[in-house]
Design a protein around this nucleic acid. Sequence first.
RNA 1: GGGCGCGUAGCUCAGUUGGUCAGAGCAGUCGGCUUACAUCCGGAAGGUCGGGGGUUCGAAUCCCUCCGCGCCCACCA
Length: 703
Amino acid sequence: MDSKFDFRQLESKLYQKWEKSGAFSPKIDKKKKPFCIIMPPPNAYDKLHIGHALFVTLEDIMVRYHRLLGEPTLWLPGADHAATASQIFFEQKLRGEGRSRHDLGRDKFNAELMTWMLEQRETMEGQLKVLGASCDWTRKKFTLDEDVSRAVVYTFKRMYEEGLIYRGKRVINWSPKSQTGLSDLEVIYQEVEGELTLIKYPLKGGGEIVVATTRPETMLGDTAVAVNPKDKRYKEMVGKTVILPLMNREIPVVADDYVDMKFGTGAVKVTPAHDPNDFEIGQRHNLEQIEVIGKDARITEAGGKYAGMKVTEARESVAEDLDKLGLLVERKKFVHSVPHSERTKEPVEQLLSEQWFVKVGPLAKPAIEAVKRGKIKMLPKRFEKIYFNWMENIRDWNISRQLWWGHRIPVYYLADDKSKYTVAFDAKVAEQELGGKVVQEEDTLDTWFSSGLWPFTTLGWPEKSQDFEYFYPTTVMETGHEIIFFWVARMIMLGLYCTGEIPFELVYFNGIVRDKENQKISRSKGNVIDPIEMVDKYGADALRMGLMMGTAAGQDTHVDEDKIRAHRNFANKIWNAARFISMQDASPQAIDKVDLTKEDKAFIKEFNGIVKQVTKEMNKYAIAQAGDTLYQYFWHQFCDVVIENSKPALYGDDDRQKSSAVATLNYILKNSLVMLHPFVPFVTEAVWQELYEGDLIVASWPK
RNA sequence: GGGCGCGUAGCUCAGUUGGUCAGAGCAGUCGGCUUACAUCCGGAAGGUCGGGGGUUCGAAUCCCUCCGCGCCCACCA
């Protein structure tokens, strides 16, 4: 053995050996309870970043631990088609080549994107291997695989038939830049210094009513003014008619509880086509919906002389015109929060659109119950509160995306009469059902719809496959807390709905990886640490330890190169301890076959205590704690004390002492390697191959 | 507006149900190329555990309050 652990030479060889040996693929044994993690699929086209490296490390530790316990262990890897991000990215790529998706058309665009994405996926998968991920590549899945897509259609169809999916015209969030609707979760609110404009609306027959708005241009689409029914100031005006300035439209004054008497003037202009709350007021009072803002964020024909203006231009123009008419009471600075697209960062428009929705209420109830009754646990527990808070106030979920890339909504319309439609697996079936030529819905599904089915579509559901029967419900879902609503909540709802069972027993939330200065790692900040570069420099074991140490479920964590380097030293320490022990000529015997010295007995007793402690910590998913226990013990007790203490015996002539020492050192080393293996799989396996029989990856956890 | 979390050595953080809990890594300091490892070994230094109050025989650990940070959800014109 060399005096240094040569990770560059050994890591990739060991990985290949593991993969070839079949150690990653579990054998189904009905007598044993399996352990299963479905990997949160990284974007197929994305290079792995440091956050991926953290989750891979944590999951791999869990998986290797359970494999060593002898449980049939499945870690199923996957790749995500990441609808919105991919389409935006690929369109940009095309633009760079002087092309656009419209040149290609839908089918060709998707075909090219698919080819490119499958290529990229190999890079991503190669990086998972570099990190040591012991996942079962024979079972890998892609979110656009044919069987997965079929399961998506199957689910959509069933939900539609049971009234859980409906089509409706609602005010939705619209991203003008990417030309698609967004779910509420894809919208972030940003504080913006704007203006609050007070406008006089003249009453027919004399008088006036003053309304306040941050968006004067939407008045073009006003179809009412609303006041609170309890508001004495306006009691007389309810039921009267207002002349909408600039448009000269007669609109009613209605009374509605939604209006807050204490805010502004207590009177609200109502624009049912461009505000979700106004939409609901409109429903209650039967108001007309006039769409004055188009999908291009410009004023429509319905906006009269303002047609064609950008909303921002119209805002000024309307205010000016009102001022000329003497109807502008005041414009004052006003800080308010404005909805923006999370992805493109531009302000979103709220406008009326026909979309497909999931009726979430009936799905949420059992999903709340499952967590309340402890069938699904979350780590840390505080996320259960966050989950309840959201689930109890959940609103219907817009699942239509106006994108080409993704699962196309399986709805077919009769070409001659689009009011007739059906949900079907393909056009032929739909044609038979509707008795005529059909066209498919243009929209695709929100990525999170298919992602919500991931824990079981990956296992072959809805077919009654062996994997599904055996591994489902899965054991652990390990993911980031930032997607608890996007993903975790949806998997629980859809899992219970589709399979009648929980999708997983435990949700383990990892934290966000930050840099030394506690900043989020992001490309724009230029503080990215490339995990693959770190592996190159210090080895995968060092990166894994550096990332994992000091983390706790739900807690953000820090990385810096120093920390990684420190653990490269640890990997080397393991290597050298083993090297020292391998240099002793006596052939090791089992500890129960040797007359142990009193001291060695004490060392073994102490070590058995460590085994108990680490096992307990691992079972609690206190992973970093277990890692720390092992680190401290191995370095500062085993190396600094036990080994040092053995030297006089090893170099002396007393055979009894010598064999006692050799047996003790080997016993502790061997079992330490097993326990350390989930954390630092490469160096431990490399050592094992030097000293012992078989493969460490399938050894047995000490008792 | 509602909810959640954090504040422990210079830095990054561990401290599970209150009693070897005052710790680790890195940085730093002093001394060592000792035949497993200088990617190492040994020694010393370093914190009134954010402030204040309370419960207790005893609190970094439980309760209250204040200060300072951060996150999530909803969105009020």
